[in-house]
Each structure stands twice: as C-alpha cells, then as structure tokens.
Design a protein around this nucleic acid. Structure first.
Length: 290
DNA sequence: ATGGTCGCGCAGCGA
C-alpha cells in the first residue's frame, strides 16, 4: 500500500496536476492539505471516476484537508471530533476548532490522519501561539484515540522543520517560524509519543526538502524546508519498505504546488518512482553560482 | 534570502 501526503495549495487549481500525479505515482491513499475548498465543492465525482473515494473537510478559501483512498475510507473523524467553530471565536483554546486542519479515516485496515498545522506567521505572534495550542490539541487527540501499539500513519504539512538538516540554511532561518525550539519540541513530543519519522528512517541524508518558496527561484537552488512529514507508529515501521519525496511534482506545468508529495510504501512496494534527487545536487550547485 | 510567486478573488492578504 502506497500512502502519500501532499499540500496541494488549492485542490481546484491543482486538479490537473493531481490527476497527472495519480497516474505517475499510483498511490493508494493521498492525504491532502490546503484544498481551499468547501465540502460542497470537493471534486468527489472526479476522484471516483479515477477509483478514489474522497473524504473532505473544509470551509473554502483557506485551509481544508482531505483523504483520497482507493482502498476504502471508513470511520472518518474531522477536526479532532469537534464541531468547527466560527473563525471569530475568541483566541486561546478555541483556536484549534476554528479552522479545518484535521481529518482521519481507516483505509485498507490502516488508520490514517491528514493534518495541516497552522503556519504561525511570526514567532511570538498570536498566530504562533495558536500553532502551539493546535499541536497540544493534536497530542491530546492522539492520546485519547490511539494506542501506540496499534498501527497509525499520520501525514501532513506540520509546518515544522524538525532539525537543522531539514532547512537549506539554519542561519538564514534562525529566528523564524518552523525552526523555533517550541515548535521543534512540539514535533519531538509526537515522536516521544511513539510516532516515527518514516522519511528519515529511510533517508538520513541532508538537503532533502518538501517545500520551496515560489519566489526567487528557490526550488531550483534547493532553498527549501522539510516540513511535510509521514509519521508512523511502531507496528508500521517494519512494514515501511520505501519512502520518497517526489520533487518531480514540484516542477513544470501546469503550475505546481509549492510543496512536493512525501510517500511511503507499506508492505508490498508500489510502482518504482524516480523522485529526481539523483544528480540534482550538481545541477543545483551550478545554479547557485549564477 | 521579508520576497523575485502563487491562490483567492478583485484589493490586498496569507503562505
């Protein structure tokens, strides 16, 4: 079973790219973020034509998460099992319930979760504080709804680069969001709880990113961050046969998302996929000199 | 290396 997570940066704008990528990677389950759609606008029929059941949770315009699965999607939970609250809800503990950032389902016998952590904007802002509160809510949901001895695959845009190897230039990123100690501690607590970074398990090498700013040719210089993650529980670890970040999906036309999909194969390996990292280092080094 | 680009939606904000 091939499971991917992909911040698509508008599912509506990305639809043609998504169809291309489904053909390319043949994933069984795709955890999506930033669909920017209301549930009523989710392209359920279009996914069904391609053999995927689409489960969507969003209000439109911002945020929005979804799960597309060709091996079933049962027991759907949205927003940590809470009702979405109006966006003008007072700040503080209500922040995790104001935006559509979490959906889970059981696909092919495996519980999967698609999450989109708040960006945080700037360290110390109320948006940053809300990001940390959101991580606390995620932790509590995990504690209440999952036994670490049970299978779980949690994927999404966590908006945290867990280590300095996960950013193109730690000095340049220092002081910003995604790398601050409290954010990294929130990520580390997920690992302490029993989740394992499946990509890192298979790829210890540095300079592997999942997001690159659209601007300034950052993708072509590989100035990025590894902020999209697939975390798996201990029972799943020995079943993960392969992991990749498909940087090919960040290229070309139609316009790509600013994020690349992160994929794992659970049990039997899926279709072979050249994610385009081999030889990229030399080409990138040449570009940086220009 | 706080923006040179996107998406949304029609001005300017969020990422």
């Amino acid at each position: 079973m091939r499971i991917a997570t992909w911040n698509v940066n508008s599912l509506k704008a990305r639809l043609e790219k998504v169809w291309w990528w489904l053909d390319r990677a043949e994933p069984d389950v795709v955890l999506m973020q930033e669909t920017k759609l209301a549930d009523s606008d989710a392209p359920v029929a279009e996914f069904a034509e391609r053999g995927y059941e689409l489960r969507h949770h969003g209000e439109g315009r911002w945020n929005g998460v979804a799960i597309a699965s060709r091996c079933g999607a049962s027991d759907v939970v949205t927003n940590f099992g809470e009702a979405l609250r109006p966006a003008d809800t007072p700040e503080g503990d209500d922040a995790p319930y104001a935006e559509a950032r979490m959906i889970s389902a059981v696909c092919g016998g495996v519980p999967v979760v698609s999450v989109y952590a708040p960006n945080g904007r700037t360290v110390g802002s109320r948006f940053y504080e809300a990001k940390l509160v959101w991580f606390e809510r995620l932790e509590r949901w995990l504690q209440e709804s999952w036994d670490p001895d049970e299978p779980l695959v949690l994927g999404g845009d966590l908006n945290v680069a867990p280590a300095d190897d996960d950013v193109w230039d730690p000095q340049a990123c220092h002081g910003g969001t995604h790398v601050s100690p409290p954010e990294r501690e929130a990520f580390a607590r997920l690992l302490e709880r029993g989740l394992i970074d499946a990509y890192r398990l298979h790829h210890p090498e540095p300079e592997r990113y999942s997001w690159w700013d659209y601007r300034a040719g950052n993708f072509h210089k590989n100035y990025g961050m590894r902020i999209d993650h697939v975390l798996v529980s201990a029972p799943v670890v020995p079943r993960v046969s392969w992991a990749e970040i498909d940087r090919e999906a960040r290229k070309g036309k139609p316009t790509p998302s600013d994020h690349a999909p992160v994929l794992i194969d659970v049990d039997a390996p899926g279709k072979p996929l050249d994610a385009g990292w081999k030889g990229a280092a030399d080409r990138i080094a040449a570009r940086r000199k220009r």
